[in-house]
């Protein structure tokens, strides 16, 4: 596998990068801060010196004008990538978003519009060479409009719909699109929240996502129990959703 990872410097992206490096896949890291990319690349090489040589380039979800250049750099370094993984996103609590219009604009733009733009760049390149894999982290928060994640969830709902349509449209052309819907996972993103009883870890999510990618699955909930939780949530009638806080 020759994989580009946007967001591979932290959280679930970092764990996915480590696992891919361990099995000898070629990696190219994208992220907004050069120093952080350097340190993550050094980490991957020190862990598996005989297997990988990791390169990187700056790429910021809030600066879509840089997407093309970043993917050019990845293409050159990897000799044509066949996999693109996006774990980067912004997160903020509903209260914080309601209190700050600029934050809301940034979050919705990064998580929906700019992520879609990045995926468009990536999928065009992949399709031009006969297909490949596109693995993008959405969220269970996008499965239904819910009070505590009204804005963040909406940004992810749009992304999930886009990813599903990509799968419908380009599956026959050799593009394998995986939409990852993590439930609550203990990362920096969720550090401010009280973890529910079945909170996942980046480690377990990474294992599951790589397995789903290898098998060409279009959708994965992680931890898996969230598939059942969200099935119930989607069935709940509106009058119930109006009353509960979930």
């Amino acid at each position: 596998m020759k994989a580009v990872i946007l967001g591979g410097t932290s959280g679930m992206g970092r764990e996915i990068a480590r696992r891919l490096a361990e099995r000898g896949d070629l990696l190219f890291l994208l992220g907004p801060r050069k120093k952080n990319l350097e340190r993550s690349a050094a980490d991957l090489v020190a862990r598996h010196p005989d297997k990988v040589d990791v390169a990187f380039a700056p790429c910021d979800l809030l600066r879509p004008e840089g997407f093309s250049e970043a993917l050019d750099a990845a293409d050159a370094a990897l000799g044509g990538f066949d996999t693109v993984i996006v774990t980067a996103a912004l997160f903020a609590t509903q209260e914080a978003l309601e209190a700050d219009v600029d934050l809301t604009q940034r979050l919705v733009t990064a998580n929906f519009a700019n992520t879609v733009l990045f995926c468009e760049h990536a999928r065009k390149r992949l399709l031009a060479r006969g297909g490949g894999r596109l693995c993008v982290f959405s969220s269970v928060a996008g499965d239904r409009g819910r009070k505590p994640v009204a804005i963040y969830g909406a940004s992810k709902a749009g992304l999930s719909a886009y990813l599903e349509a990509l799968d419908h449209k380009f599956h026959a052309h050799g593009l394998s699109v995986l939409c990852v819907k993590p439930g609550f996972v203990r990362t920096e993103m969720t550090a401010a929240l009280q973890p529910p009883p079945f909170a996942g870890t980046p480690d377990r999510v990474a294992t599951q996502v790589i397995r789903a990618m290898d098998r060409g699955k279009p959708l994965v909930y992680s931890p898996p129990v969230w598939a059942w939780v969200m099935r119930v949530i989607r069935w709940l009638p509106r009058f119930v959703m109006r009353r509960i806080g979930f």
Binding site: A42, D43, T187
Partner: peptide
Amino acid sequence: MADRILGF
């Protein structure tokens, strides 16, 4: 979460 190896 700060668990990166910086060099060996």
